[in-house]
Amino acid sequence: MLKLIHGADFHLDAPFAALSPEKARQRRAEQRQLLSRLADLAEEEGADLVLLSGDLLDGGETYQETVEALSHALGQIKAPVFIAPGNHDPYGPRSAYAGTAWPDNVHIFTSVQPEGVELPELGCVVHGAAFTTPQADRSPLMGFSAPRDGRIHLMTLHGDVAGQGRYGPIRPEDIAESGLTYLALGHIHACSGLQQAGETCWAYPGCPEGRGFDETGEKGVLSVTVEDDHAVSARFVPLAGRRYEIVEADVTGKDSAGEALRAVLPPSPSGDCCRILLTGQRSFGAPDLAALTALAQPSYFSVSVRDNTRPLRDLWQRAGEDSLTGLVLRALKGEKELEDRELAARFALAALEHGEDPCP
């Protein structure tokens, strides 16, 4: 049996442009703490291998202290570590991968052509390939087929399954024909869960920590087990120190936006990054977003408030019109025995005016 830790898309030294310069610096420092948590997890899980599938570095501006922290953390792992550089951190003669002295347990793939590293003590072969330019329109799996020699064949790659773009598009058919037991992928920032094509299992772990509101919720890595009969199972392990969350605050029936906002704030500061969306129909004026943001700020590391509300409308204001809408509203208004005339009127207006479901 083999135990693997599969991670990808750390994007160390990302700019965090949406945050203030001070908080962006703090977030970059916190990203480096992910590396210690990765090393601790490998120890806790008793990992035989660690597969890192590209974009460990964001590539815009990489600080030497970050590369040193990465090298140090990977050197603390007692298992072999394999890195397949991605489109944000392609391998090249001037890349951080080429210009750094890496620990003996770290192997970095350097070619677009897959190469294999035999690990006889584990009864497996780890294959991998690298981006050597920021774009690659050729499948890194094209023409690859692992020998059927009874050993466990693994591969770590950065690429886009079923993608049509310029970031290593991989066809599911290529995965099915690869002869691999497990394909460890990077590039997609959402965890895919364990997938299968033919007899080959594959997965994206997603990024280990979100960087924006397109990367919400828990983020982490995969703990993968490969049995002696080549059966594969995978478990998601959260690793993020902070999360991005989008929360809705419904103002319908509330006396103020502040009342709606207080109802969704956490009971104690969460330390996460949050976007609060005000929704529903309001019976008061336009919300003061600056004041509401100040009210929410103590509850989060970073917070923004957006207004998606609509003024409360008089359901019966068009009842006097000489139109189909007016006719329907007059009929509903006259139905004194109708249990919920207002709800019926909302449905009628939504259908007549917009073809939509009614607002609450």
Rank of each mutant, 00 (worst) to 15 (best):
L222K: 08
A344P: 02
S139P: 14
K333C: 02
A263P: 02
S145W: 09
A136Y: 09
I276L: 12
D137Y: 07
L352N: 06
E68W: 13
L278E: 07
E227C: 10
A84K: 09
E218K: 15
L332F: 01
R275T: 02
D255H: 04
A240C: 14
L157E: 05
G355V: 08
I276Q: 09
P114K: 05
G206L: 14
G212L: 05
L327F: 10
A296H: 13
G186A: 09
H127S: 07
G123T: 05
I175S: 03
E353W: 11
P358S: 10
E173K: 08
Y300C: 13
A344Y: 10
V81W: 01
L49W: 13
L265Q: 06
E118N: 07
A24I: 02
G212T: 06
G143V: 03
G116L: 01
P287Y: 03
F109G: 02
K23V: 04
G186V: 03
P169Y: 05
D322R: 05
G143H: 07
T279S: 11
G198K: 03
A249V: 04
R25A: 15
Y244I: 04
R306V: 14
D137V: 11
T132V: 14
G86F: 10
L265K: 01
E218V: 12
S145R: 15
E209M: 11
W202M: 11
K254A: 06
P85N: 07
E227N: 14
T133R: 14
L265D: 05
G206V: 13
A203H: 10
S256T: 13
A249R: 07
Y97W: 14
G143E: 03
A197Q: 13
Q64T: 12
